[in-house]
Design a protein around this nucleic acid. Structure first.
Lengths: 212, 212
DNA sequence: CGTTGTGAAGAGCTTCACAGCG
DNA sequence: CGCTGTGAAGCTCTTCACAACG
C-alpha cells in the first residue's frame, strides 16, 4: 500500500483530519478510533483507515490512534512538518490581509517578501516586510530561499505574476486571483476561490427546495 | 439526462467555467467550442459537454456555445441569477473583511445583517450595517428575508453560531471557521478553508521532488 | 463539415467485510 | 475481544467514440 498513487481527495481529507484531531487535542483527548474520528469528520471509517494507510501504519489494533502522534505523522506525510518560505505578488487589500493573517505562519508558511508594480505601494512596510518592485523578484527569491508563491493580483495580472514567480524559482503557487494559470507541469498550482462555495450553497439550497 | 443526480464535482467546475467565460467575454469573444473552453479550464472537452448537459442543451452543433447566453444559462442552473440575502456571525478581523469585500455582492450575495456577542463590537457600523447582539438574530433574519448564513467566529463558537442561524431560519451556511458543524441534513454547509490549499501545495511540491 | 450530446467503456474512489494483530 | 489494515466489490465520475444535427 505504501507506494500507490495517492488520490487528490485523500489530500483534501487529511487537512480535515488534522483540524478535527487538533480540536480533540485541545479537549485533552489522547486516543481516537477511526469510527469516532469518522463521525466527527462526516466520512466513512474505512475511508480514514485507507487514507492513513497510504502513508504508513499509524494505528494500534484494538486501541485506535494516539492523537498527538497521528497529527505529527500526517503533517510529516504532507510535508508540513517544517517552515515554507513564501513570496507574495500583489499588495492590494487582499494581499495586505494575507500578510497580516496570523494563521498562515501558524501553519508553517512564512511570507518573506512582497512585490507589486504600483509605485505608490513600493516601499510600504507591512508586518516588517518591505514591498519591492516586481523586477527585483529574481534576485530576492533565491536569496531568501523562497519556495512558494502567493498571487493576490487582479485576474488580468495573475499570469504575469505566475511567470515572474516561476522564472525566479518558486516550486509551487497558491493563487487568490480569479483566473486560470498556464504553468509547467512540474509546478503545482492551488486555486483559492471562495466564490465557488457561494455558488455551491445557492445550488444546494435550491436543490433542497425542489426535493420537498 | 435532464433529471439525473448531479456530481458534486460538476458544481465545482461550473464555477470555473463561469470565471473563464467571463474573462473571454471581457475580451469580446462571442462563441467558444467545448474544446477551446476545455483548454482554458484544464479539463477534458467531453467533461464540459457532459456537465452542461445535466442542465439542458445550450450549444449549437457545428458552432459551439454562445458565451453570453451560456453564462446566463449556467447562472440560472446554479440559482445565482438573483440576489441572496445573507447574515454574518462573528465580526472579528475576518468578519469585517468579508463585510467590506466587494466581490461578494458582485456575485449576488448581499450581507444584510451582522451579529456578535462581544459588547465592544455591538453597535459598530460597518459598510452601513450595524453589528447586533446575537440574541436578536431570530427576529432579524426573517424580517430581512435572509436565507444564507456566514460564520466567521473562532472555531469553538462556530457550532453555536450555526445553531442560532438555523434556528433563525437560514437555509444554508458558508463557514470560514476551522471547525466541522453538525446540522440537519437539509441545511447545506460549505466549508471555506484555505489552509487546505497550503497543505496541498506543500504536498505536491514534495511529490515533484521525489519524482525527479 | 464541425461540433454537440450521449451511450458505453474505462478509471478512480469509496465502502464492505473480514483476516490479522495487539 | 476490539480495532486496524486491506483485498475485493461496488459505485461514481471521467473519457472515449460516434451518431445526430445545425
Amino acid at each position: 500500500m505504501k507506494s500507490k498513487r495517492i488520490p487528490k481527495a485523500t489530500i483534501g481529507r487529511l487537512a480535515v483530519y488534522v483540524q478535527v484531531l487538533e480540536s480533540l487535542r485541545r479537549d485533552r483527548v489522547e486516543v481516537v478510533s477511526s469510527e469516532k474520528l469518522a463521525q466527527a469528520c462526516s466520512v466513512n471509517s474505512s475511508q480514514i483507515r485507507k487514507d492513513l494507510a497510504y502513508f504508513g501504519e499509524f494505528g494500534v489494533r484494538g486501541v485506535g490512534y494516539y492523537i498527538q502522534e497521528l497529527i505529527t505523522s500526517i503533517k510529516r506525510s504532507l510535508g508540513i512538518d517544517r517552515v515554507w518560505n513564501c513570496a507574495l505578488v500583489g499588495v492590494g487589500n487582499l494581499g495586505r490581509a494575507l500578510m497580516k493573517h496570523r494563521d498562515i505562519p501558524r501553519k508553517g508558511f512564512v511570507i518573506k517578501a512582497a512585490f507589486d508594480c504600483d509605485p505608490d505601494r513600493i516601499g510600504l512596510v507591512i508586518k516588517g516586510i518591505e514591498v519591492m518592485c516586481l523586477s527585483r523578484i529574481k534576485e530576492v527569491v533565491p536569496s531568501l530561499d523562497v519556495e512558494v508563491g502567493f498571487i493576490s493580483t487582479p485576474p488580468e495580472r495573475a499570469q504575469r505574476a505566475a511567470n515572474f514567480l516561476i522564472e525566479a524559482g518558486v516550486r509551487g503557487i497558491v493563487t487568490f486571483a480569479p483566473a486560470r494559470l498556464e504553468v509547467p507541469a512540474n509546478i503545482p498550482v492551488e486555486y483559492v476561490d471562495f466564490s465557488h462555495h457561494l455558488y455551491a450553497v445557492a445550488f444546494y439550497i435550491n436543490q433542497e427546495a425542489n426535493k420537498a
